[in-house]
Design a binder for these strands. Structure first.
Lengths: 133, 133
DNA sequence: CAGGATCCTTTCAGATACTG
DNA sequence: CAGTATCTGAAAGGATCCTG
């Protein structure tokens, strides 16, 4: 894998930043079922604020992953849809999601063990000392 | 893909957050070549601060992706290495990286087009008006 | 309906100083 | 060497109000 200093790596880094952000993946996954209007997305993606939906969609549009189609009617109507490029992103992403789902058990267990050890680690010869306050 | 509201999705979300953060992927990629000491990682991962390296390693250790081995010598020595689980993460991640590298050209072009359009869009009947200040 | 503009709080992350 | 602790500026993100 390229290093952060590599010029070649900047674009990769930026793409990972986008798909790694809090909402873009959900938008892409939702649009994979077909195009949506702004408020449809807002309703289907629970917890997203209007602001973040707008910003995320702008980012995806800027990267050519999503199209934005305005119908100059009253009231206005705006449809968002995946571009062919955006659609191809879903495959490698889903591979990662499958990995996460497949391994969430051992990860959750590792966390429990780690957190227990951190909270209950006795300092040798000093009695019990609780770390992290 | 599960929705953010699904309980089932929380772990997946958290895993994506981890691999999506700024440094974890570089750490994993570096450790894939073999175990490293703290300062070796710091030297090899250009631009990372001591603080962020510590925090990222703690997170990876907590999730069971990385092991931390302390040698109680003077000066102290600490080795970090991938767990078997951590090693399996690299494959789906690399699929994503390959996608990014393969498609960085069209994405960069889409950005140029988008940014130009945003900066030069003339308001109809109003002469040229520059958006974003 | 689909946002743009603002305000305001929370979180992140770099720099620095100190320690076993 | 391998960290921890603290401070601080920057950035992310939510809530709210306003508009064509």
């Amino acid at each position: 894998m390229p290093r952060p200093s590599d010029n070649d790596c900047q674009m990769t880094r930026q793409i990972l930043d986008r798909i790694g952000d809090k909402w873009s993946l959900y938008i892409i996954a939702t649009l994979n079922d077909g195009s949506r209007r702004f408020n449809e997305l807002k309703r289907e993606i629970e917890g997203i604020s209007q602001r973040m939906l707008t910003l995320s969609l702008r980012g995806l549009e800027r990267d050519g992953l999503v199209t934005r189609t305005v119908f100059p009617t009253i009231p206005p109507r705006v449809d968002y849809a995946l571009t062919p490029l955006g659609a191809t992103l879903l495959e490698p992403v889903m591979a990662l999601v499958r990995w996460a789902e497949k391994n969430k058990q051992p990860i959750a267990q590792a966390r429990e063990r780690f957190d227990e050890a951190a909270n209950a680690a006795p300092e040798p010869g000093e009695g019990v000392v609780y770390r992290r306050r």
